[in-house]
């Protein structure tokens, strides 16, 4: 009956057409069907309801019920969340597949719980990055020397700096022109974002590398959650698990198409060989892991071990 319908407002930053935006929309549909209309998941994409960095306080304080975030967005607030995104550390698909429901996932769930939100699902987002440039391709680790590059975040910038690059932070809308004109020499983004943000229009070269893994997770307000009926909770949990599972092939397909599409649009894309990956990892990984362990002295090591064990 309509009067018993529960509303779950879910805020996220992806455009509706992005493969993660679609995953969340499918989750909403599934919940609606499975609950026979008893739970209405109202999705607000593209920062319509709240800016990316307002999502967490909004959910924790109950301004709306749920939000999605990319793991690395937690930054210094919850440095442990960056564990899966350390360079070349967790990019094997077989391992990533085992992440939802794993010990490592529950360690992170527990940390989120302490930050006053309850995690609902982990959605596989990417395991490949693309390093883009105009003047010359970036293939060998030496190619980073002196490059002004826009990195992913402060933590992984340590690795770029170790390779001799000069990482800079620049607001997103300025990046295309900065890359085109040479304010920046190189860009770094998720492989499929290279297509959706049309990097091929202003960058000649790209190196696709298994550089980092990113997960999008959806979390809810814990008080709202405990106010739900057990059957409503189980509808949401089952829908979350199903969405987690179906996301693996979908994300892989998007990434697979990305390289072809970038090449069709005229970008010279180099797919990194395992040997090259090993030589990049040798330089970039340790400084980032060290910085990670410094920021997460209590839980960092245990978390990395749990990821290793997958």
């Amino acid at each position: 009956r309509a009067q018993e319908a529960v509303t779950m407002r879910l805020s996220h930053q992806y455009p509706p057409a992005h493969h993660m935006g679609q995953a969340i929309a499918r989750f909403a549909e599934r919940v609606k069907t499975d609950s026979q209309g008893g739970i209405n998941v109202q999705v607000f994409p593209a920062e319509q309801l709240a800016k990316a960095n307002e999502n967490f306080p909004g959910v924790a304080r109950g301004a709306f019920e749920a939000a999605a975030a990319v793991n690395i967005q937690w930054g210094n607030t919850l440095p442990e969340m960056s564990a899966v995104s350390l360079p070349y550390l967790f990019t094997d698909l077989a391992k990533i597949r085992k992440f939802p429901g794993s010990d490592a996932a529950s360690q992170l769930d527990a940390l989120l719980q302490k930050r006053a939100v309850r995690n609902l699902m982990w959605l596989y987002t990417t395991r490949q990055a693309i390093f883009t440039s105009n003047a010359r391709p970036i293939v060998k680790i030496e190619d980073f020397k002196g490059l002004k590059i826009r990195g992913l975040n402060a933590l992984t910038d340590h690795g770029l700096a170790a390779a001799g690059a000069a990482p800079s932070a620049m607001p997103g809308p300025d990046v295309p022109q900065a890359l085109q004109s040479g304010v920046l020499d190189a860009g770094l983004t998720d492989l499929s974002a290279g297509v959706s943000r049309r990097f091929y229009e202003f960058q000649k070269f790209g190196t696709a590398a298994p550089y980092f893994c990113a997960l999008t997770h959806v979390y809810v307000n814990p008080r709202w959650w405990s106010g739900l009926k057990p059957e409503q909770q189980s509808v949401l949990t089952r829908a979350a698990q199903a969405t987690e599972q179906e996301q693996f092939p979908l994300t892989e397909a998007v990434a697979g198409k990305a390289v072809t599409e970038l090449r069709e649009k005229g970008m010279t894309v180099h797919q990194q060989t395992p040997e090259e990956a090993a030589s990049w990892a040798a330089v970039m990984q340790k400084p980032v892991v060290d910085a990670f362990l410094r920021q997460a002295p209590e839980n960092g090591r245990r978390l990395l071990d749990a990821l290793q064990a997958l």
Binding site: A50, N53, E54, P57, G58, A169, P171, P173
Partner: peptide
């Protein structure tokens, strides 16, 4: 009422 503080600060704290 919404969480005013976050809304306001989220709007004015940015490099842009």
């Amino acid at each position: 009422l919404p969480a005013l503080g976050e809304l306001v600060l989220g709007q004015i704290d940015g490099y842009l």
